[in-house]
C-alpha cells in the first residue's frame, strides 16, 4: 500500500446468484384444465381484465378458479397466503396479477412463486413501469426464469373500452406463456 492510499472494505452484499427454480409449461390445449386467476382487490382495471380472461378461458373449455388477495401482514395475510397455497394445489396453471405498484408487484411475484413451487405453469402479470422490479424480485427469490407478462402502464384511469381491448390483445400472449398449444 502506498502511503497515499488506504484500504477499505466493500459494504455491499454479494449479488444474488442466477440459478433459477424451474418453470413449467402446459404443452397442451387449455380445454379440460383448471386455470386459476389471482386478483388483487386494489386494482379495478385488473379485475376487469381478469374477468374478461375468465370468460375467454371458459369459452375455450377450461374451468376457472378465482382468488382475491389484498393483505401483506397479520391474520389477513396469513389467510391470503393459505388461500393462495390451496389455490396453487387445485389449479393446473395460474395467472397472477397485478403488479402495478411496488409492493403489489412484490406480492404478485411471491404468490406466483407459490404456484411454481407446486410445479405448475404460472404467469405473473405486471405493468410496464414495474417490469424491472418484477424481474428483480423474481431473481432475488430464486425464480428468475418466471414468466412475466407485461401490460401497458398505467391501466388505472383508462376507459373500460380500452381495458377490454387490452384484455383481447393480451389473451393470446398469456396463453402462449403458459405453454397452451392449439
Amino acid at each position: 500500500m502506498s502511503s497515499n492510499t488506504i484500504w477499505v472494505r466493500r459494504p455491499t452484499a454479494p449479488p444474488a446468484g442466477d440459478v433459477s427454480a424451474p418453470t413449467f409449461r402446459l404443452e397442451r390445449p387449455v380445454a379440460g384444465l383448471t386455470i386459476g386467476l389471482r386478483t388483487d382487490r386494489a386494482w379495478r382495471s385488473w379485475q376487469l381484465i381478469s374477468t374478461i380472461w375468465d370468460e375467454y378461458l371458459r369459452r375455450d373449455g377450461a374451468q376457472t378458479i378465482a382468488v382475491e388477495t389484498g393483505a401483506q401482514i397479520g391474520q389477513p395475510a396469513s389467510s391470503d397466503r393459505k388461500q393462495i397455497n390451496e389455490f396453487a394445489g387445485r389449479v393446473d396453471a395460474a395467472i397472477v396479477g397485478l403488479g402495478t405498484c411496488g409492493s403489489c408487484t412484490t406480492f404478485t411475484i411471491k404468490d406466483a412463486v407459490t404456484v411454481e413451487e407446486h410445479e405448475k405453469p404460472v404467469v405473473a402479470v405486471v405493468c410496464e413501469e414495474f417490469t424491472v422490479h418484477a424481474h428483480n424480485v423474481a431473481r432475488h427469490v430464486g425464480h428468475s426464469a418466471m414468466n412475466v407478462l407485461v401490460l401497458p402502464y398505467p391501466l388505472e384511469a383508462r376507459p373500460a373500452e380500452e381495458l377490454q381491448q387490452i384484455a383481447r390483445e393480451y389473451y393470446p400472449k398469456v396463453l402462449e406463456l403458459l405453454g397452451v398449444t392449439a
Partner: peptide, 14 residues
C-alpha cells in the same frame, strides 16, 4: 421481523 413487512416496504411506491 416478517410483520414489519420489509419486502413490501422496501419496494413500494410509497
Amino acid at each position: 421481523e416478517p410483520e414489519w413487512n420489509a419486502f413490501g416496504l422496501t419496494t413500494t411506491t410509497s
